[in-house]
Design a protein around this nucleic acid. Structure first.
Length: 479
DNA sequence: CTATGTAAACAAC
DNA sequence: GTTGTTTACATAG
């Protein structure tokens, strides 16, 4: 069982998986910029998934829900840079997936679909087309490795004069079969709806998603998310209580649509960047509850000793935070070989994370990379029985990370695990990784990386899960 | 029962 | 005090 990465992965910042090709919708096509990896490195010398499609591996990608090959399917358009846009249109929130846009055309001009099957050569070529502009500036910032993409002190930067929440991208829908989350669509059938009314009805996860979708790189720091809420929602209207902030943090932590990005330099003092996962970008944010306890209601049981329970909860949270911090420190010490972070101890992704995706052909099926967290990429988790150590980490030895932070989910076409191409290797009875199961696991505990076991995977991976997908943001896979 | 919101404990910084 | 994690609990549907 291959439990380590090829050396070439350790120090291959150029082996980049393009997160997606970003373009600025509503902006002249000459302004289309390539959004390369989050570190801002160009993709021109990159490592591209299409190139990995050996005859054997190609099949793994050939089952997009829309019937299109995944590898022909991920040239995303992106339009988060709303402030700089002088577009008369307000396509400022759009995110479209190649080939997945069904009725998106109802909302977008054809020119908005800069979506063609992505060829490797084109990726390289695009990186040379990048004109100057804000995105380029962001690249520069990342070259300095100190400036996160979304270090926007000017709160107005998140505002878009023409921005109309939720209502500019009608037609997108979840790729899931589930109905979208209820969100008072009646208020947002047209641009110019009542923002406050809309916001009032939207859960935190959705609002955070919106905030992130609006920000360059789909990343924000917590404080900016707060500010976005202040400006764009009425959740923060009650200044007396900080509950809304707590809820934001809770959602960020618990919802798999959001992931942390480690920030280098002094920015780290302000906390993590929170970024939308690729999956969230593609499919919308899922119900936060999906990532919470899947145990049946144990209220009666718990209420017998509410106080100690509460205390124990806090202790767990605190311990988890401690482990995360410890790992963080450890990573900084071992900077040499850790451009990865332990995906389980800390869900954070290093700022230098390239959304790397290892070549399928180079790894045996049993060592396919594991998703960074059970909180997300759950469709993949579905078929990956694993064991976790006490820290909820998948490890092969003390302090030894097994997997890249971004496994094949880095592919914008992360396949659903229901596909036989994935199910076959996943059905192996042999555990992918070995580690001590959590001693703290017990039937009374909510499902956590420690305690979930296979049930977690199965539970959260059900394709019938609820998924919010914003009409104005999420791509349309189905119908 | 699920989804959501909220409070709170706790640890790290 | 802020950030992040986790659990508990309440409530609506």
């Amino acid at each position: 069982m291959a439990t380590t990465f090829p050396d070439s992965h350790e120090d291959s910042p150029r082996e980049l998986q393009p997160r997606f090709q970003a373009t600025l919708m509503g902006i002249d096509e000459t302004d289309q910029l390539e959004w390369s990896s989050t570190c801002g490195l160009p993709l021109s010398s990159g490592y591209h998934m299409p190139a990995l499609h050996t005859p054997d591996s190609a099949a793994l990608f050939d089952y997009a829900p829309d019937g299109l090959p995944y590898n022909n399917n991920y040239n995303l358009t992106y339009s988060a840079l709303n402030t700089g846009s002088s577009s008369p249109r307000s396509y400022t929130n759009g995110l479209v997936l190649t080939g997945s846009v069904g009725n998106m055309s109802e909302s977008y001009p054809p020119s908005a679909y800069l979506i063609q099957p992505q060829k490797q050569q084109e990726i390289s070529h695009l990186s040379d087309q990048v004109p100057s502009g804000r995105l380029l500036q962001i690249h520069d910032d990342f070259d300095n490795q100190c400036a996160p993409m979304v270090k926007v002190e000017d709160l107005g930067s998140y505002d878009t004069p023409g921005y109309e929440p939720d209502n500019c991208l009608q037609g997108a829908s979840t790729p899931h079969k589930d109905p979208p989350m209820p969100s008072n669509d009646s208020d947002r059938n047209e641009c110019g709806g009542d923002d406050a009314a809309v916001d009032k009805e939207q859960p935190y996860a959705q609002l955070i998603y919106r905030a992130l979708m609006q920000s360059p790189g789909h990343m924000m720091i917590l404080r900016d998310i707060y500010n976005w809420f202040k400006q764009n929602t009425d959740k923060a209207a009650d200044k007396e209580t900080k509950g809304w902030q707590n809820s934001i943090r809770h959602n960020l932590s618990m919802n798999g649509a959001f992931e942390k990005v480690d920030q280098p330099c002094e920015e780290a003092k302000k906390g993590f960047m929170w970024r939308l996962t690729d999956e969230a970008i593609r499919e919308g944010v899922k119900s936060t509850t999906r990532y919470r306890s899947k145990m049946p209601n144990k209220r009666g049981h718990r209420s017998q000793h509410p106080q100690p329970q509460r205390q124990a909860s806090g202790a767990k949270g605190g311990q988890a935070a401690r482990r995360a911090a410890k790992l963080k420190r450890s990573h900084r010490r071992n900077e040499g070989y850790s451009h990865r972070s332990d995906p389980y101890i800390s869900r954070s992704v290093p700022a230098s994370e390239y959304r790397y995706s290892p070549p399928f052909g180079s790894l045996p099926s049993s060592s396919m990379p594991y998703p960074p967290s059970p909180y997300y990429n759950s469709e993949v988790d579905l078929c990956r029985p694993t064991k976790h150590d006490d820290f909820g980490s998948t490890m092969i030895g003390p302090g030894l990370d097994l997997l890249p932070t971004r496994p094949y989910s880095a592919s914008p076409q992360q396949p659903l695990c229901t596909d036989p191409a994935y199910m076959v290797p996943c059905q192996s009875s042999e555990p992918l990784f070995y580690g001590e199961p959590s001693p703290s696991s017990s039937g009374d505990e909510p499902l956590t990386p420690d305690s979930a076991g296979g049930d977690w995977d199965m539970d959260v991976a059900m394709p019938t899960s609820t998924s919010f997908v914003f009409d104005d943001m999420a791509p349309n896979y189905m119908h």
